[in-house]
Design a protein around this nucleic acid. Structure first.
Lengths: 155, 155
DNA sequence: GCATCTGGTTTTAATATGCAACTACACAAG
DNA sequence: CTTGTGTAGTTGCATATTAAAACCAGATGC
């Protein structure tokens, strides 16, 4: 490849996200972490990926501040990989991916799980985008604008 | 790689989504298509990716039903690549990725654009997840459950 | 103290990526 | 009709990244 294109300095926030979590495994690692998986071996077993890849991915996720390593937790002096707030912030992306599959997948019957409201056990609604004043927005109701110049902290 | 792992038959909807649009370029192609880009050369110029890669990606996206080719549109008898409903359905994922960057990126000042409500020009709210009966849900309010057996169409 | 488990690293092979050069076709000008 | 230019790709090759499998070291278990 000569060099995998990096979007680290791209001005598009989507590209920047992808740069951090847009590869095949990172998102799935975050998904597993979401489910409470925290140990190297557990990730490896559940995802079935090669250990060297897992090593690299975990390190990258830690570098990006999406995971942290905690010295221990269950006694055995090994590492726990835990989601940071930034990592937990990926949740809407996971939900969006999930809902896209649910809506458009060619074989939805192969999908094993559904996301439900814990309180009622009923499936959740689709993600909604609202305006500042609370109106439900469709994609067509939105537009992109240049970011306003950074507002200086009043000093 | 011996073989790039495929999640086509994975039961997890997140993995299935990633299988379709989880690679470096596909999401960005969809983003550009969202902005109205439809021609091969335009994609190539805006994204700066190699033409062979673009060819492969576009074909894959067409195969997956995310894009369609329309015979023409502006006169010149070339192809237009247009989003299908499935492709437009990616919008929430794009928004989620964007908002994640906006919230957690280490250098948010480098982000060039913001998503606004067309009507007021004000930034949109964060994506919201609601229960069936309208309560706003936090990640902790949700759980995964096995998909109920497919409901047969009453026949 | 010896085997085994966990958490990796190293080696090697396969695949994907990217660049550049080349082809095919449409359309326009001369 | 011949040449020229722009679009839309394809092909070939060098290199990077990914993956599998073997290997290894320290901790644990017995």
């Amino acid at each position: 490849m000569v060099k995998r294109t990096s979007f680290e300095h791209d001005a598009c926030p989507i590209a920047r996200s992808l740069n951090a979590i847009g590869d095949w495994w990172s998102m799935l690692i975050i998904r597993e972490a979401w489910f409470g998986v925290s140990r190297f071996g557990e990730f490896q077993k559940k995802l079935g990926l090669a250990k060297n890849i897992l090593t690299v991915r975990l390190r990258a996720l830690v570098d990006e501040g999406i995971l942290t390593t905690a010295p221990a937790s269950d006694g055995s002096a090994y590492l726990d990989y835990l989601l940071t707030p930034k990592g937990r912030g990926v949740f809407p992306i996971l939900v969006a991916l999930r809902q896209w599959s649910e809506e458009f997948d060619a074989r939805p019957e192969e999908i094993a799980t559904i996301l439900v409201d814990k309180q009622t056990g009923r499936p959740v609604r689709k993600l909604e985008l609202h305006s500042e004043d609370g109106r439900l927005l469709t994609p067509a109701d939105t537009a992109l604008r240049p970011r306003p110049a950074a507002k200086r902290v009043t000093a």
